[in-house]
Write a protein that binds this DNA or RNA. Structure first.
Lengths: 141, 141
DNA sequence: TCTTGACTTAGAGTTAACTCTAACACCTAT
DNA sequence: ATAGGTGTTAGAGTTAACTCTAAGTCAAGA
């Protein structure tokens, strides 16, 4: 069985990033695909999975620097394992915190929107509007 | 009753941003405090509440540009109300989406960490380790 | 008096993560 | 033969949101 591989343009489409970005990641040492005859980048499924994982981490705020560290630790094997897990746990803590922030602010938004919509249906006067919204403008710290 | 006011340094401390940032926001037209005799910025409670709200929105990914629009619409009063609500609803949709992303990736992280920790307690061989983690490296799209 | 905190303008520097351009070469399929 | 996708180097530009510096002034409080 020969494993499925991708050329840069295909992979870019599949995972939804630009070719520029893939070459950029390569320059940064984040993903280094094999080359086939003709020097064409040949991304494996493993490459794809790694990039997808990377994008998930990035989506939750992990920096490319941390992802470089992650990769380096991974490549160390057993030696890097403890630190690698630590890195993931740290990131998980960040994600949890961010999740809370989003939850809190979602309900703040819900309230705010409700207030405005109440006002719209009641269709009160401008001066009423001002005090109305102002006094409810509390934050959720 | 004279309302409580803040000078720039006090307010910066209270809400946890730098004075630079407050002046920057002013330059950007986001918060324009009154000045007292001596030309000193005098932030009101209303100013503070607005900035805190702004920071909450910013924390959930709203840009300063959108916040400028928000302020402009607010200042229009009834005229800007529909669009203002629209803006908030759009942002709420973004927040919900981001929330989902964070939830998904949190459980991805949980799984990943569990796998590594299993491996650590089992303390297997390196080559085992490689296949072990690789084949579980699925994403949660 | 001296320190502290505030004020101004004007602009430079920072960081992250792209994003693009130029200018040219190579290979494969139609 | 030509078009499309790929390759290279080298570097410039972009965006957002700060962040800081300089160089000077001013006013109030201990």
């Amino acid at each position: 069985m020969t494993e499925k591989t991708y050329r840069i343009g295909q992979l870019a489409k599949v995972i939804g990033v630009s070719e520029h970005t893939l070459r950029f990641y390569e320059k940064e040492g984040l993903v280094i695909p094999k080359r086939n005859k003709g020097n064409i980048r040949s991304y494996t499924e493993e490459n794809r999975l790694w990039i997808e994982f990377l994008l998930h981490m990035k989506d939750t705020g992990m920096t490319l620097e941390d992802l470089k560290r992650y990769k380096a630790l991974w490549e160390l094997g057993d030696e890097g394992l403890d630190e690698l897990v630590q890195l993931l746990e740290d990131h998980r803590a960040n994600v949890k915190a961010k999740l809370k922030t989003y939850e809190n602010n979602l309900s703040l938004l819900d309230k705010k929107i409700d207030l405005y919509q109440d006002y719209i249906t009641k269709n009160g006067r401008k001066d009423l509007f001002e005090s109305f919204v102002q006094e409810k403008n509390q934050s959720t710290d």
